[in-house]
Design a protein around this nucleic acid. Sequence first.
DNA 1: TTGGATACCTACTTTGGGGTGTGTACTTGT
DNA 2: ACAAGTACACACCCCAAAGTAGGTATCCAA
Lengths: 133, 133
Amino acid sequence: MTEIKKTSTIQFNKQTVFKLCPITYVMEKIGSYWKPIILFHLLSGSRRYGELKKAMPHITEKMLIQHLKQLEADGLVLRKALPIIPPNVTYSLTKSGEGLRTVLYEMANWAIQNDQKEDEPLFKNLKDFPKLK
Amino acid sequence: MTEIKKTSTIQFNKQTVFKLCPITYVMEKIGSYWKPIILFHLLSGSRRYGELKKAMPHITEKMLIQHLKQLEADGLVLRKALPIIPPNVTYSLTKSGEGLRTVLYEMANWAIQNDQKEDEPLFKNLKDFPKLK
DNA sequence: TTGGATACCTACTTTGGGGTGTGTACTTGT
DNA sequence: ACAAGTACACACCCCAAAGTAGGTATCCAA
């Protein structure tokens, strides 16, 4: 995995920054292009690694595991591996990750509202928003 | 301003991707480290360029205008410049940008819930979440 | 005339996020 | 004996995003 440099200017005095803006805290956890999308696909329940890959055809394997590992390290995602061959690994949301459901829901909600204004809307409504179980 | 390459693999067949995952649509609009943070600071009302700079001490000027310009181009932010010297430019949320309030609110909410678990919580509650006017 | 105030612009450089491609471990099926 | 299936690991490379550092325009006040 690619290491993260701790000395960049962005990392400077993070504590104080967080106090001023809780959003900064969120961005440190899920602030990348892929993470929210991965989390979105886990909202409907646990998924195998291969299932996630199929659900996101345009993500590279490297990005997928890399972000899964980080989400796991950040306590948002749980990895369960069965000791069998061929391997069987499933990923699911932790309680903390599950807490992001409303965030993602509101994002989807905004996307739909915002998209209606354009010529050819892509989504219709929120009926298809993933429900757990 | 830095140009955006339209031919990257990520851009490939975006239409179909959006249909599968509305979150992808959102990430294209506000999916960067700084954008949600900038939007957060505009939730309480219009702000001058210099005010935003002060509110985000660790952002570079380049990043600030660059993202402001893109947010403006994406119709999330409105720029109002008075023709005086020294210049007076204020930024505010458009209706579309204002629609992100709930998203940002839920983010802050999650940050607070999530943060309570740690040793030294940074935020207390949502009373300080910016209200318009 | 010099400097401050404001909101930028524009080179140049760096960095790390992301892409490509290959390899691996172990078992089951043919 | 070999390929297929699964979930990765690793090395190499590229480029866009972010950082650094300087400059600009215009007016006014000292």
